[in-house]
């Protein structure tokens, strides 16, 4: 491989990390509260509210059932509106975030469902407010499970970021597409694939380790 390609790959790694990091962060900033709301408003929970749960649940389900590639295309006008451009690394962060939010929300909801109802009952019996119960009882108890879920989500975002290359995003995905598909340079294709696999494995490994360290049961 030429120096130029090696430099391109190095740049691609950084871009992939950048997209993954920011899209994951943003999707959690929105998806975590959304997951909490889905959880607390569901039947028999702390702040049961059928209407809120139904509306948010339906939106999340629709967003989640759209294939990511379709979402990428559908979001082009929105991306342009937000970032001023529809191609490039920064522009890719928008559809990646939007695509990850419903996945994060459902994952968070599932983690919170694992918290023993007895612990919430104990909190209620102490006279804790719903907000206090969420912050000081439910979230800490679910933390190991949330971390495990986060590792899966970040790895998913990384996978999606490669797809963003198709519509002009940056990163390793774009390189794989450009050199592997259009120019048929197999070595470049496999190098980027290997790098992506390693990155996913690293993320899973770190997430698993953090979760294990946190878990006291």
């Amino acid at each position: 491989m030429s120096d130029y390609i090696i430099q391109t790959i190095q740049k691609g790694i950084l871009e992939t990390l950048e997209m993954t990091f920011f899209a994951s962060l943003l999707s959690y900033i929105i998806g975590l509260p959304l997951g909490v709301i889905l959880y607390v408003t569901s039947k028999g929970r702390l702040l049961e509210n059928r209407i809120v749960n139904l509306i948010l649940g339906t939106i999340v389900n629709i967003m989640r059932s759209l294939p990511f590639l379709i979402l990428l295309v559908l979001l082009i006008p929105f991306t342009r509106f937000v970032t001023g451009s529809s191609i490039g690394t920064v522009a890719s962060i928008v559809p990646l975030t939007v695509g990850a939010i419903p996945i994060v929300a459902r994952m968070v909801e599932a983690s919170l469902c694992e918290v023993q109802p007895g612990i919430i009952e104990a909190a209620n019996s102490m006279g804790a407010s719903p907000l206090y119960i969420i912050i000081h009882f439910i979230l800490p108890e679910a933390t190991p499970s949330l971390l495990q879920g986060a590792a899966i989500n970040v790895a998913t975002v990384l996978g999606y970021s490669a797809m963003a290359g198709v519509i002009g995003g940056g990163g390793l995905g774009a390189i794989a597409l450009q050199y592997g598909y259009y120019r048929y340079q197999k070595d470049v294709l496999w190098t980027t694939v290997a790098l992506l696999v390693i990155m996913v494995m690293l993320i899973q490994g770190i997430g698993g380790l953090l979760a294990k360290k946190k878990r006291k049961v």
Binding site: G118, I119, A122, S125, M126, F137, P140, P144, K216, V217
Partner: peptide
């Protein structure tokens, strides 16, 4: 008011219901 009242009525359970991560 109910939360206030509950500060003066404690409860213990068969399954203890402690925070495991704390």
């Amino acid at each position: 008011e109910l939360r206030e009242v509950r500060h003066s009525i404690s409860m213990i359970f068969q399954s203890f219901n402690l925070l495991n991560q704390r």
